[in-house]
Write a protein that binds this DNA or RNA. Structure first.
Lengths: 147, 147
DNA sequence: CGCATGTAGTTGTATATTCGAACCAGATCG
DNA sequence: CGATCTGGTTCGAATATACAACTACATGCG
């Protein structure tokens, strides 16, 4: 089996084993679906335009619109008109939204620590390092991307 | 930011960037949904009981039953009664199923090679290695698991 | 200035994935 | 031999997602 095939198997097994195939439930047990959790954490530290959020999450604009509506209905985010573009929407978290983002961050940290505990201690920093490599590689190797 | 938090961000970005959040379309462009593709590749080299397949994919038995029905309808898999247990079903790929599994494997290999090309050459084997570590860690750290 | 074209966002529709519950048949254990 | 467990199937419901059609605003060209 080639290196690439081994990588494919490992990625698949990780995604399944980690529970990422269930979009309505986060692996860390947070109280939203995966997509909303990702949106929340993207918005935790910066205000974004709705389309920017979509680009970061790799989602169609219609899907983003619905996700944001959910966040707004939970009282976690607010839509404001974009100051520089009459079509646009600027997203910000409410106070409750920042609280939720903090809780999410903590839940993820705990879940990831449990994961890392199962990795030999002398290789943990390597894991993080390699995942960042992969993240960059995925961005650069999008079928339609510039890479 | 802690190591665990950095890992969380990297995992999220990778999953999104690689397109793993779209269950109806495989990142490698194969002609089925993600779940069927995973099942197909699990069955490529071993015959499994339906429940074993479910355990490997992390899916409920009802979901597995549906996926297998789809594979059977495509002419890729066959259900046979298990020889040692009258309740059980043994799954095997048909000839067409093995062909499909080969095509899938090749598509995934190409997709993964495109990904690996974006990783510095001297770190590629490390990437595979670490992903396997993570896969094992995910299995061992299931919230309800034995780990 | 005014129309053609492009872009941000919303809503409607369709498809895929998943789970849990209800149910059946065969196994296992007292 | 009856009670309970286990592997599978079917049904119903929830959720995420994309694409298409539409609105509103922006931009660029004559």
């Amino acid at each position: 089996m080639s290196t690439a095939e081994e990588l494919a198997d490992a990625v698949v097994s990780f995604v399944r084993g980690f529970g990422l195939h269930r979009p309505e439930q986060t692996p860390c047990g947070f109280e939203t679906g995966v997509a909303e959790a990702h949106a929340l954490s993207e918005l935790a530290h910066v205000s974004l335009r709705q389309m920017e959020l979509g680009a970061r999450l790799g989602l169609a604009k219609s899907t983003v619109s619905r996700i944001v509506t959910n966040l707004v209905e939970r009282g976690w985010a607010a839509r404001e008109p974009a100051s520089d573009d009459g079509r646009g929407v600027r997203l910000t978290l409410t106070h409750a939204g920042r609280d939720a983002a903090d809780r999410l961050s903590e839940a993820r940290r705990q879940r990831m620590e449990a994961l890392l505990e199962q990795v030999p201690i002398d290789r943990r920093s390597e894991v993080v390092d390699v995942l960042r490599l992969l993240q960059k590689a995925a961005d650069a190797s999008r079928p339609d991307g510039t890479g």
